[in-house]
Simulated assay, not measured.
Amino acid sequence: MGRSRTVAGVAGVRERILAAATELFAEQGYAATSVQQVVDRAGVTKGGLYHYFGAKEDLLIEMYRAVFGERLAALDRIVGQGRDPEWTLRAIIDDIVVGTAAMIKESAAVSRELAAMDNERTQRLQADWRRYQETVRGLIRDAQEAGVFAAVASPEIVSWSIFGVTNSLHTWYRPDGPKPAAAIAEELADLVLTGLRA
């Protein structure tokens, strides 16, 4: 299979390798993709791949860092502004929906495959995900205890109603679909916050 337009248009070797792996993992899964397929699509040698990545697993971990690292940094920026809980939760929902949609292929590859891997490196990544969840739940919990949000559901259920949509976004969202990501984010935030209003 020849290189796609996406991969052909990426200049750097490392970036071409990641773009090729992202497409292949999203199309056929991590386990079904060989290193040879990645190098063929990227138009590089195996030596070129191993210069940047020690193993195929490193490609998946790098994708996770690209997808989730941005979301975690954005979460910290949003929460760090110290604004009211409704504004903060709306901004978090907007960021996670719009950010995930912007990296939909990477999100598809990561969400399907990383959960099945269990080693020291992936456990560190999963610890970041737990920190993200706990930050969102802490925001909801604090607002409920202060009487700003209604305690109609636990912080865990509220957060999973958000994460359930965003973690499955790659299965149904289409960039050329009827609604842009920002509109989906707004609707989801409206739904969640309407239920939480005291």
Results as ranks from 00 to 15, higher is better:
Y132N: 02
P175E: 07
A73R: 03
V110Y: 12
A11L: 14
V44Q: 01
Q126S: 10
V165H: 03
L125K: 07
A150T: 06
R77I: 02
V39W: 13
R131E: 09
D190F: 03
Q37R: 15
R41H: 14
N119R: 15
A153C: 07
S161M: 07
S154H: 07
G195S: 08
P155K: 11
A26R: 01
G69K: 00
G69V: 00
V110S: 03
F68S: 05
A101G: 06
G29K: 14
I96S: 02
E145H: 14
F53W: 14
T45R: 14
Q126N: 10
A150W: 10
G82L: 10
H170M: 04
Q36P: 05
A109F: 07
T45G: 15
V136K: 08
A183Q: 14
G9D: 12
I78Q: 03
E15H: 04
A116S: 13
I184W: 01
T135R: 12
T33L: 08
V148E: 03
I96L: 01
E145R: 15
A101L: 07
E186C: 02
Q81L: 07
G2R: 15
R112M: 08
I92S: 05
R112Q: 13
S159K: 09
G82T: 08
L169P: 08
I93R: 08
I92Y: 07
S107M: 12
E113W: 10
E86P: 07
I61P: 00
A151I: 01
A198K: 15
T45K: 10
T171P: 02
G54S: 14
W172S: 07
R71G: 04
V136C: 06
A31D: 14
L24W: 05
R121K: 13
R3L: 12
I104Q: 13
A91G: 05
S4T: 15
I162A: 02
G138W: 09
R65K: 12
L196F: 11
E113R: 11
I184N: 01
I61V: 13
M117D: 01
E15K: 02
I78H: 05
E120V: 14
M103G: 11
I17K: 03
T166W: 08
G147W: 06
D190C: 04
E145L: 14
F25L: 05
R90F: 07
V148A: 09
A66P: 01
S34A: 13
L114Q: 06
E186W: 02
F25V: 03
Q144V: 00
E186K: 08
E70H: 09
R14K: 12
P85D: 03
D190W: 04
T166Q: 11
A183S: 11
E120P: 09
Y64Q: 00
A127Q: 11
E156Y: 12
V110G: 05
W129V: 02
H51M: 03
A153D: 09
L59S: 07
Q28H: 08
A182I: 04
T100Q: 01
I162S: 03
G29V: 11
V35R: 08
F149E: 00
V13W: 09
A151K: 10
G177N: 12
L60F: 01
W172L: 06
L114E: 02
Q126K: 15
V136A: 04
R130F: 10
E145T: 10
P85K: 11
L89I: 02
A55M: 09
T45E: 10
A55R: 15
A115S: 08
